[in-house]
Design a protein around this nucleic acid. Structure first.
Lengths: 190, 190
DNA sequence: GCCAGCATGTAAGGAGTTACATGATTAT
DNA sequence: ATAATCATGTAACTCCTTACATGCTGGC
């Protein structure tokens, strides 16, 4: 087997999604990839198409052209045996990148000495309500997966996410009473 | 006031760190910025220096050159009033970017149908132990902050992180018994 | 008349990384 | 000897994004 190509995780994500389906177009993949958004960045449309071209160049996916009347031609992609092997190799052998978190709410709170107390409260309140809505979305996705063994692993990750977002809401809610009161003196001027 | 410049969050992070100190060199900042790693990406050395140049060009930081014998010259940066105003504006008015999570462990588990059960267990076990060590690091940092009012907000974020990582460990540990047993039939060949 | 959906693609650019370069000092 | 600390900087590159381009169909 040739040396592992340094292919970005997003390429493996797309390859992985293809490995769960029979045949998908780039357009289909865009919707499938939305399922990743709860624990990974859901790639932009343009990246989906460019990763598909990369995967095709590597021989990890194959496609057939499908003409449609009225609509533009469609390319239906499927994983090749080499693609499946590459995916297996990635899962089994490749070093796992440390999870990346860029928490812009925490970043702002970290510099809270320069913000008004009301603002900090709003920051956390808004974050809680946005997280609640993410959680509601995930609950729906999870419900659609049911306990079908075909979706065993997505369901596992879904349950992980459910607990993750619920914990996040709890934790941030517990922070609220520790914020400075609006009555307290404002931050030092500067 | 001029229109807000589209400056990346990392620039504000560096500006914010400077707002907590008196004077810092790029080299100092590299160590200060490590404190961000629990909830944000700690920028590369080269980015710290380039963001400092950007901030200087905007007039948000000022620096003085300090000669040293034996060692190379040093540039000590401090925030300007314009910089503090920009930071305040960012905190108070700018739209908050949604937190970004790229969880490469969850991504792999999502495609668990192509991995050996032992591998999945290792994946999660390793993630738990690496998270435990992050948690231990954070505990130490948090202890150093104490309850000094100067570090009130970093301490708040630190406590958030403590709960965050503890919850992550619990959640993933709860997933372990739901993984397929090694005795179960391996994934379909392909 | 307008927007959404289907379907792909290019262009331009920003954010961020790794690797390298320099060079004195001090500790192991 | 070798590595770490101090101290800054450049070069090359990747990932990923937004915005735009095209064009037909069907629903409101």
């Amino acid at each position: 087997m040739s040396r592992a190509e340094p292919v970005p995780p997003t390429a493996y994500a797309i390859l992985g999604l293809l490995s769960m389906a029979d045949e998908l177009s780039g357009y289909d993949l865009r919707r499938w990839a939305r399922a990743l958004r709860f624990f990974y960045v859901s790639p932009a449309q343009s990246q989906i198409y460019s990763e598909l071209r990369r995967l095709a160049a590597l021989g990890w996916v194959a496609h057939r052209e499908v003409a449609q009347d009225g609509l533009p031609d469609k390319r239906l992609y499927r994983t090749t045996p080499e693609g499946t092997a590459a995916l297996r190799h990635w899962l089994e052998e490749s070093p796992v990148e440390p999870p990346v978190l860029k928490h812009s709410v925490a970043l702002r709170l970290f510099f809270g000495h320069l913000a008004r107390p009301e603002r900090l409260r709003t920051l956390l309140d808004d974050y809680i309500s946005r997280t609640r809505s993410v959680l509601a979305d995930l609950e729906q996705v999870r419900a659609e997966l049911g306990d079908d063994p075909q979706w065993r692993f997505p369901a596992l990750v879904g349950d992980w996410g459910l607990r993750y977002y619920a914990a996040e809401i709890d934790t941030v809610a517990a922070l609220l009473p520790r914020l400075p009161c609006p009555e307290e003196p404002p931050p030092a001027e500067g």
